[in-house]
Write a protein that binds this DNA or RNA. Structure first.
Lengths: 346, 346
DNA sequence: GCGTTTCGTCGAAACGCTTCGATCGCACAT
DNA sequence: ATGTGCGATCGAAGCGTTTCGACGAAACGC
């Protein structure tokens, strides 16, 4: 494999000149540049990424921290990961996948101490996330996808759950619904302080109160069966519900089935609106679900781009955290066939 | 950040001794080892990954090559990626995501020339895959998930489509079905030489012929709507079908809806069996789909482990390709509620 | 016409590790 | 005793870059 030495020799220049051609930190005359370029082309030269990283103390590698297993990652996660990887690549960076287990704190520390990565993107952030605490302690730039309980000083991109819930309830109340249920993630997810679960719940309760809606809330595991059971209980408890907001893709399918089996029509008797989901998932249901799409790809891109800005930007930006990313993106409503006018109460 | 120098100084030994403690390539006395360990602990020392890689010409990084966008990656892909990342990590390796575009050949070449990765896992392999050709040209170890048209000399792990189709047809014929349709991926996917599409089709045709079944085959895009349309045509063309094998998760949901809308009951009139899928996806359907689960996690683990064997194994193994991975894993049948006895023809 | 910049280039010193050869005891067989 | 071999350690030479100081030569102001 050709090294910079080989290129320099072939082009009849010094090694440092070749480096300057590549990095552009010092001017190089046109004729020299062309000779070097030619040499690189004939040798098929590519810089050794490791050597470059060691010398410049910039590896051009980013880490994507995501919790392994537990909850099995949502469907939009793939979209997110892909988008993050592509964005990184477009900027000449690599993205390494870093699955963290339960003892994520130590693993996070080891990761940054290895000096392998220039920055870290943290996925599936919890309200009190030990990984974030650990990262704050170090000097490796990072951004959060999601956010902690008090994220003021931290750069993050997250779903705007308040707006999402507001839009969801606007849609439903606009159709005349006043009795609306919420089918959320598991209770464990709530207790673990998983952002979406906590924030959607809070927003739902607040917005419903403000609008004077009658509500019922249920947590359930991420399976169709659990969704079924939860909905059965929900309607037993409050038979007058005419609409259901769901935050749990898998459970939603069970919910729909259960509602139909229970003798209610969708959307004739009950409307179903799945939030933090996607039209693609919604299309799997029959009738097609009304969904609110999680902005997975956008979050991935934003997260990586803001991270790169911190890494490559002037030290001032990186240090002071000026112009810190604080982006909240609402889910986009995609009206399907599971939401319709509330039944007129006789 | 502490370096090996710091550790050596604190422990009162030379740098190389510290290195030997870490790598174990030369014996170190117990007392020395303990002093070094202590020094590392108090400094919170972690080896600089870049320096280590440069000096040892082993980066401990693996690349996962996957085609960006197009077909949007199946649901099991996430499972696969996660499993690959975890396996790598368990062995002290990192996994970088490498999305390749259309001109994947050049990108693949650049990747290996950077000497950033010790090995490459190739996902979504096509029958004639330029990435594989490129990799064969170089000396970077790689393994395929999926396989090319003639994979004899190449290490691969793939789904055993023959066995999967055989098992699928066994299940259906065992229930008395003789008229069986196949709903596959898009025709474009077939023409692109995407392994699963091509191999399932071939296996289906061969097995059906051997058993003297009446068949009808349809290709359609990966959407529920396309599935609907395709199934409508399918039954128009051959109304006597009593079973449908599907190889297309999204389309399957449309297919089921269309069958029901068409006035046929599932599984009373028509059985549906979704192959290269998963019970989790199957559970989203109501009634729950009978599926054959793609072994995503297993493939991820196998692929990475065999790659590591080539990388770390004796040069002989790496060079001769002795004990090359040739693993074919069938999908596992999970009987749901969409397959049942064939209707008795009056 | 003489300092003074600016431009383009070079050589050498890092970067933080691994690895190789050499050295030094010390136990062992002879 | 004498050589042999092995275990434990050290120093130094890389690995392939980037980056810094230096140095001519050309361009500039006055």
């Amino acid at each position: 494999m050709a090294t910079m030495q080989d290129v320099a020799r072939l082009a009849g220049v010094s090694v440092s000149t070749v480096s300057y051609v590549l990095t552009g930190v010092r001017p190089v005359s046109d004729t020299t540049r062309q000779r070097v370029q030619a040499a690189m082309d004939t040798l098929g030269y590519q810089r050794n990424a490791l050597a470059r990283g060691l010398a410049s103390r910039r590896s051009h590698i980013l880490a994507l921290l995501f919790p392994a297993i537990e909850r099995g990652l949502s469907g939009t996660a793939l979209e997110f990961v892909t988008s993050a990887a592509e964005t990184a690549r477009r900027h000449g960076y690599h993205l390494v996948l870093w699955p963290t287990g339960a003892d994520d704190e130590a693993e996070t520390r080891d990761l940054v101490r290895q000096r392998l990565v220039d920055g870290v993107v943290v996925m599936e952030v919890k309200l009190h996330d030990p990984r974030v605490v650990e990262l704050q302690r170090g000097d490796t730039p990072f951004t959060l996808i999601g956010r902690t309980a008090d994220p003021a000083g931290l750069p993050y991109a997250d779903i705007d759950f308040d707006a999402t819930v507001r839009d969801a309830l606007d849609h439903l109340t606009g159709l005349g619904h006043r009795h609306i249920g919420l089918l959320s993630h598991s209770r464990g997810s709530l207790q673990a302080g998983y952002g979406p679960t906590v924030r959607v719940l809070a927003a739902f309760e607040r917005e419903a109160r403000q609008r004077g809606l009658l509500t019922a809330i249920r947590h359930c595991d991420e399976t169709a069966d659990a969704g079924r059971a939860a909905v059965a209980e929900l309607f037993a408890e409050r038979p007058d519900l005419t609409a259901l907001v769901t935050l749990n893709d898998n459970a939603t399918f069970g919910a729909v089935a259960q509602i139909v089996d229970g003798g209610r029509r969708i959307p004739g008797d009950v409307s179903v609106l799945s939030v933090v989901s996607s039209p693609q998932v919604g299309a799997l249901s029959h009738p097609r679900l009304t969904t609110m799409a999680a902005p997975g790809a956008r979050l991935g891109r934003l997260g990586v781009e803001s991270l790169l800005a911190r890494i490559e930007g002037p030290p001032a930006v990186a240090a002071t955290g000026a112009s810190t990313l604080h982006e909240l993106i609402p889910c986009r409503l995609d009206v399907g066939a599971t939401t319709g006018p509330a039944p007129t109460t006789s």
